[in-house]
Simulated assay, not measured.
Amino acid sequence: MRIFNASRLKMLKSKRLKNYILYALGEIILVVLGILIALKVNNNNLENQKQQQLLGSANRVLELMQKDDSDIDDVLKHWVNVEKTIDTVLVITKATEPIVNCESCLNLLLSIKLPELDDEIVQLISNEDLSNSELDTTLKAIAKDYKSILITANFYKESSTEVLKDHLGYLKENYAWFAQYVYNGICDEACQEYHNNSSDYRNKVAYLNFILYDSYQYDLLVFKDRLKNHISKLKSILNN
């Protein structure tokens, strides 16, 4: 009888231990599953946040590209009038003749209008962790074209600014009428003589046209064509 009770007690203890182990394993599995589910939910939330941030950046990129497209249009239209003035100085008027009836000629070497392209687009895209989706590939292509045009724009801005500075410095050092001309916009007889008959003035107009308008206009037209394609494609992706 005692042997039976001892054997039964041993079996009960073994069964309890087995049940305890199974219970413990079940608890561990539940905890692990809970952690995995929490990680999955957290990853989904992070992915959603990342996607929303990317869409926000893409919409901002689209807005900036549309602004740049409009700005380039305004500059190119302005340059059409500038080119007419340059033609008056360099083509229509012979080198042996005075330049007449050209009030706009007086401003050719005083100021220039350039497109205001900002690097915000490149910064926005570079801050995103891009993959190989259609949106990401499009943004990469946009960033590549913008990096290129920004280098070009900076070169022309520095070059043309240097020409204007040199011209103003030359006038300041050599002509008494410079102060009234720059400060009040008054161009007296001596000033008119310089702008109408001076080969120096014509040479500087030709140089500015060579380093800025002739070459930069082509680069802007090429970029503008790519910009329109980028705008169209990005709009299509964001609207889907």
Rank of each mutant, 00 (worst) to 15 (best):
M1C: 12
I3Y: 13
N5D: 10
A6E: 12
A6Y: 10
A6M: 01
A6T: 05
L12A: 12
S14A: 15
S14G: 10
L17R: 13
N19D: 07
I21V: 04
L22Q: 10
Y23D: 11
Y23P: 08
L25N: 11
I29H: 00
L36C: 06
I37Q: 03
V41H: 03
N42F: 14
N42Y: 13
N43I: 12
N43P: 09
E47N: 14
E47I: 11
Q53P: 03
L54F: 09
S57L: 02
S57Q: 02
N59K: 14
N59R: 12
R60I: 06
R60N: 14
L64W: 02
K67L: 13
D71H: 09
D73Y: 12
V75N: 01
H78R: 01
H78G: 13
W79H: 06
V80N: 12
E83I: 00
K84L: 08
I86N: 07
D87H: 12
T93H: 03
T96A: 04
E97F: 01
I99S: 03
V100K: 12
E103P: 07
C105P: 08
N107G: 14
N107Q: 11
L110D: 10
L110H: 11
K113A: 12
P115Q: 04
E116D: 14
E116H: 14
L117E: 02
D119W: 04
I121G: 08
I121D: 06
V122P: 10
D129R: 09
S131R: 14
N132G: 11
S133F: 10
E134W: 00
L135D: 02
D136R: 08
A141L: 03
D145C: 09
S148W: 05
I149F: 08
I151P: 08
I151D: 15
A153Y: 11
V163E: 10
L164M: 04
L164S: 06
H167F: 15
H167I: 11
N174M: 09
A176F: 04
W177N: 05
Q180D: 15
Y181D: 01
Y181C: 04
V182F: 07
V182K: 10
Y183I: 15
N184E: 09
C187N: 07
A190E: 10
C191P: 03
C191R: 06
Q192N: 12
N196D: 00
S198P: 05
D200W: 06
R202V: 05
R202I: 06
N209F: 09
F210H: 09
L212Y: 11
L212T: 06
Y213L: 07
Y216Q: 06
Y216I: 05
Y216E: 00
L220W: 00
R226M: 04
R226I: 01
R226G: 12
K228F: 12
N229E: 15
K233L: 00
L234M: 08
L234R: 02
L238Q: 02
